[in-house]
Simulated scan of single mutants.
Amino acid sequence: MPTENKVAAPLQMERSTVTKLVITGSPRLDPITVFLEDFGRRACPTESDLNYQTAQGKITINCWDNSWNAYWGAMGPRTVAEFVADCGWDYVLNCLDRGINPTVFSGNALHALAKKCIVQRRRQQTGRHDWELGELSKGEARELWHDIDVLRGIESANECWHHSTLLTELFGEEWYYPLDGKAVEENHKFTYLRRVVEAVQQALRQEQQQLAA
């Protein structure tokens, strides 16, 4: 039987407006390339306005060998440049890198916390702090002081479970509570991205002021 010739459906295309910015002169930052893409508006009916439309946009930021992007489907009447400039740096940062935290687990920070615990328990300062266990003898403190060197090599919070016996001797059976939020150090990726976001926002606000002048 002859095969039917199926006519392919026409491809759908949409145009968007893209603006490229190159930001230089930010302290301790390489040149930042920003792509601002506005996709126009989409219908977003509300109770008060069934014909309401909201703008959509995307931002892509490149700095050195790092790249981040975020899309917003409900920016109100603003362009993506106006939207990013109006938002707080923390909101924009989280949209660019979901779930990133200002601090990260650190084996060195855990080691420092363990030293603090030993010193305070040896000096009977437990009442001033949250350590579950009480006083340490001189011999116990010396032995623990030697043993805690292994904590420096721990690279993630999950690895702490491999050293639960030692951590129990230090902090008690529920050792994970004293560690929560304390065995951490600055997350340099977070700090770096914050400086990038703030530089981009400063440039966008500066551009808006120039256009308004």
Rank of each mutant, 00 (worst) to 15 (best):
R128M: 15
H111N: 10
Y91P: 02
A81W: 06
I118V: 09
L11C: 06
F39Q: 05
E173R: 08
P102W: 11
A183N: 10
Y71S: 06
A109K: 09
P2C: 00
T168W: 06
G139K: 14
E173H: 06
S137K: 10
G139D: 15
K189V: 03
T3F: 14
R123N: 15
V84L: 03
A212K: 04
R28I: 08
R28V: 13
T54F: 01
R98T: 02
L136Y: 14
D180C: 12
I154A: 02
W131E: 03
E140R: 11
T60L: 12
N51G: 11
Q125R: 12
P178D: 02
T103C: 04
E47Y: 05
K138M: 09
W68F: 11
R15G: 07
A85M: 10
F39N: 09
W64F: 11
I61P: 00
L167Q: 03
I23L: 15
N158M: 07
W175D: 00
N101A: 09
N158I: 08
V184T: 06
Q206F: 15
V18I: 13
V196N: 02
Y192F: 15
W161D: 07
N69K: 03
C87P: 00
R42H: 01
D49A: 04
A8V: 03
G107L: 01
T191C: 04
Q206N: 14
V196F: 07
T46H: 09
Y192I: 04
T19E: 13
S67I: 07
K58A: 03
I154R: 00
G25R: 10
H129P: 05
T17M: 03
E4K: 05
D130G: 09
R121M: 04
M13N: 05
T3R: 15
Q125E: 15
A199I: 13
P10Q: 11
S156G: 08
G153P: 02
A157L: 12
K115V: 03
T24P: 00
P178H: 05
H129T: 07
L151T: 05
E135N: 08
Q124M: 09
A114Q: 01
R28C: 11
M75Q: 07
K115A: 10
V92P: 00
F105D: 08
I148F: 08
V18C: 04
E198F: 03
D30M: 11
T126S: 13
V119R: 13
N94Y: 02
D180R: 12
L110Y: 01
Q120G: 12
M13T: 12
Q210M: 09
E143I: 14
E185T: 10
T19G: 07
A74N: 10
P45H: 14
E82F: 06
R142D: 09
E14T: 05
A109I: 11
V200K: 05
L204I: 04
I23S: 07
L50N: 11
T103D: 06
C63L: 10
K138R: 13
P102Q: 13
A212G: 03
L96D: 06
S156W: 11
E173C: 03
P102T: 08
M1E: 05
C44V: 08
N5C: 10
R15S: 10
C117W: 00
P10M: 13
L211M: 13
V104D: 05
S164P: 02
G107P: 04
R41Y: 12
A141T: 07
N62A: 08
V7T: 14
R15K: 08
P102Y: 11
L211P: 01
S164R: 14
T33M: 01
A141G: 01
K115D: 11
T24I: 07
L113I: 06
G134V: 02
N51D: 15
L29F: 15
E132Y: 13
